Simulated assay, not measured.
Amino acid sequence: MYEKIAFVASRSEIAQKAMERLCLRYGQTDPDGADVIVALGGDGHMLHTLHATEALPAPVYGMNCGTIGFLMNEFQEDNLIDRLEAAEVARINPLSMEARTTGGQTFRALAINEVSLLRAGPQAAKLRISVDGRVRMDELVCDGAMVATPAGSTAYNYSANGPILPIGAEVLALTAMAAFRPRRWRGALLPKNASVRFDVLEHEKRPVMSDADGQSVREVASVTVQSEPSITHRILFDPGHGLEERLIQEQFT
Rank of each mutant, 00 (worst) to 15 (best):
A124P: 02
L189Y: 01
N157T: 04
F180D: 00
D132L: 10
V141F: 07
N161W: 04
Y158K: 14
L174A: 09
N161R: 14
D143H: 08
A124S: 11
E202G: 10
V131I: 15
N157G: 02
A145Q: 07
A176Y: 09
N157V: 03
D199M: 14
R184P: 00
N157F: 05
I164S: 04
V135H: 00
E202V: 08
A173C: 08
Y158F: 15
M146A: 08
L190Y: 10
A124C: 11
D143G: 12
G144S: 13
I129A: 00
I164K: 06
V171G: 00
T149R: 03
V196H: 10
E170P: 00
A173M: 03
A179E: 12
G168D: 15
V141I: 15
G152S: 13
A194F: 06
R184D: 12
A179Q: 10
R186E: 06
L201D: 07
A178M: 10
A173L: 12
R183T: 06
G168F: 15
A176S: 13
A125C: 11
L140M: 12
I167W: 03
I164R: 08
W185P: 01
R134K: 15
G152T: 13
A145N: 05
A176R: 05
G133R: 14
A151M: 15
G121P: 05
L174W: 06
P182E: 10
A120Q: 15
L172N: 04
R134Y: 10
A169R: 00
P122K: 13
L174T: 04
P182K: 09
E202P: 07
I164Y: 05
R134V: 15
I164E: 05
N193C: 08
D132Y: 12
A148G: 00
A145E: 10
G162Q: 03
T154M: 06
A178T: 05
A151F: 13
T175E: 08
S159W: 03
V131E: 07
A188P: 07
P150L: 09
P122H: 11
P163Q: 11
E139N: 08
G121S: 13
L140A: 14
D132A: 13
G187K: 02
Y156T: 07
A160G: 09
L189E: 01
V147R: 02
S195G: 08
I129T: 02
L190E: 07
V135K: 01
D199L: 14
V135T: 12
D143Q: 11
A173H: 06
L127R: 05
A124D: 01
